[in-house]
């Protein structure tokens, strides 16, 4: 198969970038999108040009490193897969494919198609965990968890932190990402203990980092490679509201409920 690629090139964070056209030929339909880009890069190296930089690592759809905004969609045209699991058979021979980095104020460009997503780490640092130390915890079976709750928590915890939700969102919001972590932990008895503080801290951090707000277009859910539901955003909203209201009476002796 042959393709024309229009790729965003940008030397570094400060440099001015632009779209550059390339053509690749002789690509097998069975090869992955990155193997196609490998062929392009091999071509560029052979010509003495600098290869296109893009983020990738596990190439099996789980590490969340890969990004790419392909033909107007994060992770390309196939639903429920990351770019690394996208295969060229999903494109038409001779097609022109546009490839851009993910765009958000909170995701500055590093080089070419690579963006800095450490903002997502910072949100997690604000409270995306259960505060237990390594040791002194109860036996794993001492607290039964309803299977339905455990399954729902897993569905939320399946987030790979790729940031496709932010890239797809008209407002560059990180609500699905944050909602997924908030729900995952709030659904489990182990995480419930500090659920109130967690959601307030994580949302505050998210806002401070310059992500947009949610306008419920659900583009995030449509583009999430792990199919994480917007019900997690609703749950976060709920958790946030009840926590924010109860925050004023945080002492069990002054509030009552």
């Amino acid at each position: 198969m042959n393709f024309t690629l229009r790729i965003w090139r940008q030397k570094n964070a400060e440099a001015k970038g632009g779209m550059v056209s390339y053509s690749v030929s002789g690509v097998s339909a069975d090869s992955s999108f990155f193997e196609m880009l490998d062929i392009l890069n091999q071509q560029l190296v052979d010509e003495g040009a600098e290869p296109v930089c893009f983020d990738h690592d596990c190439r099996e759809g789980i590490c969340g490193t890969c990004s790419l905004y392909i033909n107007g969609r994060p992770h390309g045209p196939v639903k429920g897969v990351t770019t690394c699991q996208l295969h060229m058979r999903s494109f038409a021979d001779g097609e022109t494919i546009s490839i851009e980095p993910w765009r958000a104020k909170a995701f500055p460009i590093v080089r070419d198609l690579i963006v800095d997503r450490s903002a997502l780490d910072r949100i997690n640092q604000a409270g995306g965990y259960v505060s237990v130390n390594s040791g002194g915890v109860p036996d794993a079976n001492s607290i039964p968890v309803r299977k339905a709750d455990s399954d729902a928590a897993f569905d939320a915890a399946a987030c790979i932190g790729c940031g496709a939700c932010v890239a797809a969102c008209a407002n560059a919001a990180a609500m699905l990402f944050v909602g997924a972590k908030v729900s995952h932990l709030a659904l489990l008895p182990q995480g419930k203990v500090e659920a109130r503080e967690r959601v307030l801290k994580m949302v505050e951090c998210m806002d401070d980092l310059g992500f947009g707000g949610c306008s419920n277009t659900y583009a995030c859910e449509a583009e999430c490679p792990k199919g994480i539901s917007v019900a997690n955003i609703a749950m976060m909203n709920r958790e946030f509201l009840s926590s924010a209201i109860r925050k004023e009476k945080s002492s069990p002796f002054t509030g009552g409920f």
């Binding site: 079976n141 455990s150 995952h184 489990l188």
Partner: peptide
């Protein structure tokens, strides 16, 4: 024990264990 305390959603039976 530690992983469960951290909120790792291991597979469970209907009885919750």
């Amino acid at each position: 024990d530690l992983a469960v305390a951290q909120g790792v959603p291991f597979a469970r039976e209907y009885g919750g264990l």
